[in-house]
Write a protein that binds this DNA or RNA. Structure first.
Lengths: 290, 290
DNA sequence: AGCTCTTATGAATCATTGA
DNA sequence: GTCAATGATTCATAAGAGC
């Protein structure tokens, strides 16, 4: 078996990537810091400056991505003064001008979105997962995501517990998944461009930007084993941990030193997890269990 | 009981609305012709020209909508040459320049979306429902659209024990205090900005732009009984039929005569009036309708 | 195992207060 | 006034504990 490498690099991706050659990566999947009024958070920048800040970075992404590669950008605009901010729309337009193709917009439906109540707004339960490409002919393994539950379902088809039905329904939302028994021997269904995932609510001290299932899904869809994944805003290292577990090489870049430390721990545990064949949650709490 | 009126008017909404006074409508909800679909029937509306075509119409919408009213625009860009077209993004930006507030973007998740398979694209299972307003203080009846609560509340409300009010400590972190008193006597929760509705599989010959549940939801949310709803691209009349059933007055405008006929059938005899653009004079098509 | 019940918590938003 | 910080509101999910 070939060795799988996962690197976490401390620095600003615009600088770090400038030292990489062209056409290195098969997939870029990331959840950049959102524009925010609060200056003291993660490098917080004003929404008005966001596009200007992003473009030099995406220029590097465009260069280091293979022609058959894909760039997935998870982002959502905040409400401000009663309005949705338009910086994401402007970013899409600017990226197209930069040379990207705006291939698709996936919706991540956050089933357990943040609570709250306001006089003229409901809770925000979705985020954008924007797909950009360099060419129309990119790699896409549709079959890899045909079985939403993966090996898990095959192992459990015999028992047919209540939870099996529930989890299947929540993944597919297709209306025909009432009973997992119907699924046996049936032709597998392709997913749509709407992803139903819960955010992770674990007892951890630091929060991941997105749940592991999100990068996992895109890595399955847009890469093969042995390919190389980049997350230029890797945060606590979720993307690299998932990539390693799935036997994809990965490079994660993070500007905040304290996150880099966490990210490296995550990889180490993930490496161990290769033998476990356990779920995501097992890996999260791995240190407790072993 | 006051009488509820439903009018279907044959004509182009930009002309028809010019004869209406300011501030007439409480809600505008519509699903306009998509840019690339009915190109031949609507006079060559290429995506590139869409914004230009739309703005004179939305200028009328802005004028005839009450300050407390809401404009809901159901729209989705199609994929063309492997890319999503950007005309909807450009439209949002243009509408803001025109004076609209872009208050929210609801996602309509189409549970049973159109089947099909493509080499590098999954089925499109969602559409945008863009919410625009004239002011920040618009009418919104949140209680009217509440949904059954998750199961956890049922069990929870019986016990009402202990530290249900804890987490109020609220010193570190922006964690919520959970004040169980807010749940007493409640069986329903507020929805989110993601709508899960199936498309309708009716046997009608025309293709319904949206299922009845969609205008119904927004009419519930943004109007009271006796209010007045406008659909400037009413098509087969779905919006007016729903409005009448919910005891809201409505005006539907449609440029295609054959759709006007269908719309007429949808509305109970005696409760609707069908007008021709440009006045009540008997004209060429008048005999067909009356 | 397989239930139920308990508990923790998350890329949120707005009105108000303070500098 | 303009901008930043604080307080108030709230629900789906999963881990863990108990039976």
């Amino acid at each position: 078996m070939r060795e799988i490498k996962a690197e976490i690099i401390h620095g600003d991706c615009v600088n770090v990537l400038s030292e990489y050659s062209d056409n290195m990566f098969d997939l870029i999947v990331t959840s950049p810091p959102y524009a925010d009024k609060r200056k003291n958070t993660y490098g917080g920048m004003a929404p008005d400056k966001y596009v200007e800040w992003f473009l030099p970075r995406s220029e590097q992404f465009l260069r280091v991505l293979k022609p058959t590669g894909t760039f997935i950008l998870n982002i959502k605009e905040k409400a401000e003064n009663g309005e949705r901010h338009t910086f994401v729309l402007e970013l899409i337009l600017a990226l197209r001008k930069q040379g990207w193709l705006w291939t698709e917009e996936f919706i991540w439906h956050k089933k357990n979105c943040y609570p709250g109540k306001w006089p003229n707004r409901f809770r925000d339960a979705w985020e954008r997962c924007l797909q950009f490409n360099k060419t129309r002919h990119f790699k896409m393994n549709q079959k890899a995501v045909m079985v939403p539950m993966g090996d898990w379902a095959n192992a459990r088809l015999k028992s047919l517990g209540k939870n099996d039905v529930v989890r299947f329904d929540s993944q597919v939302r297709s209306g025909f998944g009432k009973n997992i028994a119907n699924w046996v021997g049936r032709e597998k269904a392709y997913p749509t461009n709407v992803l139903h995932l819960a955010t992770e609510c674990s007892n951890k001290e630091h929060s991941a930007a997105f749940p592991e299932a999100l990068p996992e899904w895109f890595i399955k869809l847009f890469t093969d084993e042995g390919d190389t994944v980049l997350d230029p805003f890797v945060g606590s290292g979720t993307t690299c941990a998932v990539a390693q577990r799935m036997r994809r090489n990965s490079v994660g870049i993070e500007i905040l030193a304290e996150y880099c430390g966490l990210a490296k721990e995550d990889i180490a545990v993930g490496d161990y997890q290769l033998f476990e064949k356990g779920g995501r949650n097992a890996r999260r709490n791995g240190s407790k269990n072993h």
